[in-house]
Simulated scan of single mutants.
Amino acid sequence: MTQLFFSDFDPDPALAPRPLAIVGAGGLGREIAILVAQLNEAGGAWDLRGYYDDRAPATPTVGGLPYLGTVAALNAVASPLAVAVAVGSSASRAAVVARLTSPQLSFPALVHPAVALRPEQRVALGAGCLVQRGCILTCDITLGRFVLLNLGCTVGHDAVLEDFCSLMPHANVGGGAHLATGVYLGTNATVIQQVRVGERTTVGAGAVVVRDLPADCTAVGVPARPVNSQQ
């Protein structure tokens, strides 16, 4: 898991605006466009160019920004371009990232300006993380590459969220919990302290995970229990 300290992603307002595009022209993509605008209002320096998506939208613009083409077109860009991958599904986001192979592309972490990330919190963010408004991260936390924290999520001390984990709005991860690669927590789902969730497992909306879950399953309920295997 490659990690960069959160301050490595702080924009420098003295620099010229940095071009950025969003992969995913759906609802999450539009929400990330709002996040970019909020970052710029707080002193960021992003020049949001538009959207790439293999499924073309019904109109040539989305929320006032142009549709720029497919992932193949994105790989063909001739100059450096920052990219935010706004795909909600953990598996689908990983599949898109695997196809983004151009050396011109970079993947900054984008964190809402109201989310507290001070040096004494010791929070490490992987490339491509997206952290939305209202999230609370305490201390000694590790987020892997392309982790998505949607609106109002909480992450407790010493928690580890590996690459491509996805937390939907108001999901909660307790202290010392460990989410393996590709875990998906539905809206209002909770993983209590010290619990481990296996790779690619989905936890349903409102479920509460009180004991370890295996890889490749879907778990629902309070307490959460596996209801099927994804393999």
Rank of each mutant, 00 (worst) to 15 (best):
L4V: 02
L4K: 07
F9R: 14
D10M: 13
L15I: 04
R18Y: 01
V23G: 12
A33V: 03
A33D: 00
E41Y: 08
E41V: 10
A45N: 15
D47V: 03
R49S: 04
Y51Q: 05
Y52F: 15
T61F: 06
G69I: 06
G69D: 08
N75G: 14
P80R: 08
A82P: 00
V85I: 13
S89Y: 05
S90E: 05
A91C: 11
R93M: 05
R99I: 03
T101N: 08
Q104W: 07
L105P: 04
A114S: 13
L117Y: 00
Q121G: 01
A124D: 04
L125A: 07
L137R: 04
T138H: 03
T138P: 00
C139R: 05
D140Y: 02
D140E: 13
I141M: 02
R145G: 08
F146C: 03
N150M: 02
L151K: 03
V155W: 02
V155E: 03
H157Y: 11
C165L: 00
C165A: 05
S166W: 05
P169G: 00
V173D: 07
G174T: 10
G174M: 09
G176P: 08
T181Y: 03
G182Q: 03
I192H: 13
V195Y: 12
V195I: 15
R200S: 08
T202A: 11
G206W: 07
R211A: 14
P214I: 14
A215H: 11
V222M: 13
Q230C: 08
